[in-house]
Write a protein that binds this DNA or RNA. Structure first.
Length: 567
DNA sequence: CAAGTGCAAT
C-alpha cells in the first residue's frame, strides 16, 4: 500500500498508526511508523509514542521522544501527555523535571491535558506540593483534574486530605463523576467507615451511576472492607456484566473474611463463566489453598500459571512467594524449594517463607542454613526472619543458638526484638522442659505480656506435666483472654500428665461455670475429589469408617516408630 | 490527523 502511493501522506500514516493502536496491534503500528521514515512528522511521533506508552512499552516510547528531539521536531501539547505518562511509568523523575521545563518554555503549562499528566505524575511520585502548585495555577479545573487530586491523595494514603479535596470540589459546584465515586469509596474502605460508604452508595443510586460496573466493584470492595459481607455479595449478585475486577473483588472479600471454601468455589465459578483470572486473582486464591492445606488445588493453580504463557509474569516476586507459601503450608517443602530455586528475583519474604517452612516442619538445620545463606547474599534479615529462626531453634531444640539469636538480633542485625520473639523463646524453653527459665522470661520481659506468651508457657507445662507453672500460666491467660477455651484443655491435660485426675473434673466445672465451650477440633484431609473437613470424633462423613480404620493403622505405625501423641 | 483520571492482591 505504501509503495503504491495510496498512503503517502503523513496524515494517512498517522491515521493508520492510530487505527492499529486502537486494535491493540502495536507491532503493526510501530511497523508503519518505521517504514514511513521520510514522512515522520510530529503527528506520527505523537501517535506512535502514545500507542507504545498505552501498551506498557514506555521504554520504547521514550526512546522515540528522544529521537524526535534529536532530529529537531518540536513536541506539542499532544506529545507531552503521553511522554510524561511514559516517564512516570519508568519512575524517571529527573526526565519529568526536564520535560516540565520544556513545557514551560513552550508555554503549554495552561493546557489541561499537559497539566493533568504532570499532576498525575507528581502525585504518583508523592510530590504533593508540586502537584498542588500546578493544580492551583490551572484556571480551568475540570472534573478529571479534581479526580486526579482526590485519587492521588487516596492512593498515597492521605485519606483526610482526599476527603477535603472531594468536599472542596463539591462546594465549587463540580459534579462528581464515576471516577470520583470509585476514588472516594476506596477512601471509606480504607477508613472502615461503613456509614459514609453507605451514604455514597445512596448518592450513586440517586445520580444514576448504579449500573456502572467499576462503581459496583468499588462498592463490593467497600462493603467487604467494612465487614458487611451481605451487602458485598448482594452488589456482586446484581452487577450486570461482571468483569475481572468484580470477580477479584468478591473473591478477595471471601478470602479476607476467612471463608476459604467459598473463595475456591467462587474461583471455580469464575473459570466456568469463562472469565480469565490474572495475577491478582491467583495471589488471592493461593492463600486460601494454604489455609485449607489444599495441596492439589494449589498445584492446579501453579500448573495453570505455568501453562498460561505470557498471561502471568512468572518473575513476579509476590506471585512466586504466594506459590512457595502455599507449598510450605500444604506441607510440601520439596515443591517450595523448587519454586525458590527457580525464582529469578527474590526478596526478604522469599527467604523468610523458606526459613519458617523448614522451622515448623522440624528441619532446624536447613532453616538456619537458609538464614546464613540469605545473610551471605546481603539480604537484610527483618522481624519475620527472626520469628522463623527462633521457631527453628524452638522446634529443633537448639537452646544455645536460640538464646544467642535473641541476644544478637538487635546488635548484629538492627532488628529490635518484639513480644513475638520472646514468645518463641518461651516456647523453646517450655518444649525443652526449662520451665522455670521460661516463666522468668514471660514474667520479666520488657513488654506488656499477652495471652499468647502465657499460652506458650502453658503448653510447655502441659507437655512436661508441670502443674505448678501450668496453674500460674493459666491464671495469666484467663486474665488476659477469658474466653480462650484451648487453655482449659491444656491445663486439663497437664493434670492428666501429672496423674491428678480429680482436678481434671474441676476444669470441666470451671468451663461450665464460665460458659466456655470447646470448639471441636477439626482437620482436613485431601482425597481425590477434594478437601474434606473432619470434626473431632465426627462420624457423619460417608467414608468415615474407612478413614478411621486408616487413622488407627497410621497411629499404630507411628507408635511402632516411637511416637507418643501428647494428649 | 490526536490527548489526561477510577475499582481487585501483597
Amino acid at each position: 500500500m505504501l509503495r503504491n502511493g495510496l498512503l503517502d501522506s503523513p496524515s494517512s500514516i498517522t491515521s493508520l498508526i492510530n487505527m492499529y493502536s486502537k486494535c491493540n496491534r502495536i507491532g503493526y503500528a510501530f511497523g508503519i511508523f518505521n517504514t514511513a521514515s521520510p514522512d515522520r512528522n510530529v503527528f506520527a511521533y505523537n501517535a506512535t509514542i502514545a500507542s507504545l506508552v498505552a501498551h506498557g512499552q514506555a521504554e520504547k516510547g521514550i526512546e522515540l521522544y528522544r529521537e524526535m528531539r534529536e532530529i529537531g521536531i518540536i513536541p506539542d501539547r499532544f506529545t507531552f501527555p503521553c511522554v510524561i505518562k511514559g516517564l512516570s511509568d519508568l519512575m524517571n523523575a529527573s526526565e519529568v523535571k526536564k520535560a516540565h521545563g520544556l513545557v514551560f518554555k513552550l508555554e503549554l503549562t495552561l493546557d489541561v491535558f499537559v497539566g493533568s499528566a504532570l499532576i498525575n505524575c507528581y502525585l504518583k511520585f508523592g510530590l504533593m506540593q508540586e502537584a498542588e502548585m500546578l493544580f492551583d495555577r490551572l484556571s480551568t479545573r475540570d472534573v478529571v483534574l479534581w479526580n486526579s487530586m482526590v485519587n492521588g491523595y487516596a492512593q498515597t494514603g492521605q485519606l483526610d486530605k482526599a476527603l477535603e479535596v472531594f468536599r472542596e470540589m463539591c462546594e465549587v459546584g463540580v459534579v462528581p463523576s464515576r471516577f470520583t465515586v470509585t476514588g472516594v469509596l476506596s477512601v471509606f474502605s480504607e477508613m472502615d467507615d461503613l456509614e459514609s460508604g453507605r451514604a455514597i452508595h445512596g448518592f450513586v443510586v440517586k445520580i444514576g451511576y448504579g449500573s456502572s460496573v467499576p462503581i459496583c466493584n468499588a462498592l463490593i470492595d467497600m462493603y467487604s472492607k467494612c465487614k458487611s459481607m451481605e451487602d458485598a455479595f448482594e452488589i456482586f449478585a446484581t452487577t450486570e456484566g461482571k468483569d475481572l475486577y468484580s470477580w477479584n473483588s468478591i473473591i478477595s472479600a471471601h478470602e479476607s473474611s476467612g471463608d476459604y471454601d467459598a473463595t475456591l468455589r467462587l474461583f471455580g465459578k469464575m473459570l466456568s463463566r469463562r472469565v480469565r483470572p490474572d495475577l491478582v486473582t491467583v495471589t488471592t486464591v493461593l492463600p486460601a489453598c494454604s489455609n485449607l492445606a489444599a495441596l492439589s488445588h494449589g498445584k492446579a493453580i501453579h500448573s495453570h500459571i505455568l501453562v498460561s504463557g505470557n498471561r502471568y509474569d512468572t518473575n513476579d516476586v509476590l506471585l512466586n512467594n504466594a506459590i512457595m507459601d502455599m507449598y510450605v503450608k500444604c506441607g510440601s517443602m520439596r515443591d517450595a524449594l523448587s519454586v525458590f530455586e527457580n525464582m529469578r528475583n527474590k526478596d526478604v519474604a522469599s527467604w523468610n517463607i523458606m526459613i519458617m517452612g523448614y522451622a515448623v516442619h522440624g528441619y532446624g538445620n536447613a532453616a538456619l542454613d537458609f538464614f546464613r545463606q540469605m545473610r551471605d547474599r546481603r539480604f537484610r534479615p527483618d522481624m519475620v526472619t527472626f520469628i522463623g529462626v527462633l521457631s527453628a531453634c524452638s522446634h529443633s531444640g537448639f537452646l544455645r543458638q536460640g538464646r544467642e539469636f535473641l541476644a544478637q538480633m538487635e546488635s548484629l542485625y538492627g532488628v529490635v526484638p518484639t513480644v513475638e520473639h520472646y514468645t518463641c523463646i518461651v516456647d523453646m524453653l517450655g518444649r525443652a522442659n526449662q520451665l522455670k527459665e521460661a516463666y522468668e522470661i514471660a514474667r520479666s520481659m520488657p513488654f506488656e505480656s499477652n495471652s499468647v506468651v502465657w499460652r506458650a508457657l502453658l503448653a510447655g507445662s502441659r507437655l512436661h506435666g508441670n502443674v505448678e507453672i501450668a496453674e500460674i500460666a493459666l491464671t495469666k491467660v484467663l486474665e488476659l483472654d477469658p474466653g480462650h477455651c484451648g487453655s482449659y484443655v491444656l491445663i486439663s491435660n497437664a493434670y492428666v500428665a501429672a496423674g491428678r485426675y480429680d482436678e481434671v473434673i474441676d476444669v470441666r466445672d470451671l468451663m461450665r461455670q464460665k460458659n466456655v465451650r470447646k470448639v471441636p477440633g477439626c482437620s482436613w484431609i485431601e482425597l481425590k475429589d477434594g478437601v474434606h473437613a473432619f470434626i473431632n470424633s465426627d462420624k457423619t462423613h460417608p467414608l468415615s469408617d474407612r478413614i478411621y480404620a486408616e487413622l488407627l493403622s497410621l497411629t499404630a505405625r507411628l507408635s511402632e516408630q516411637g511416637y507418643v501423641p501428647g494428649t
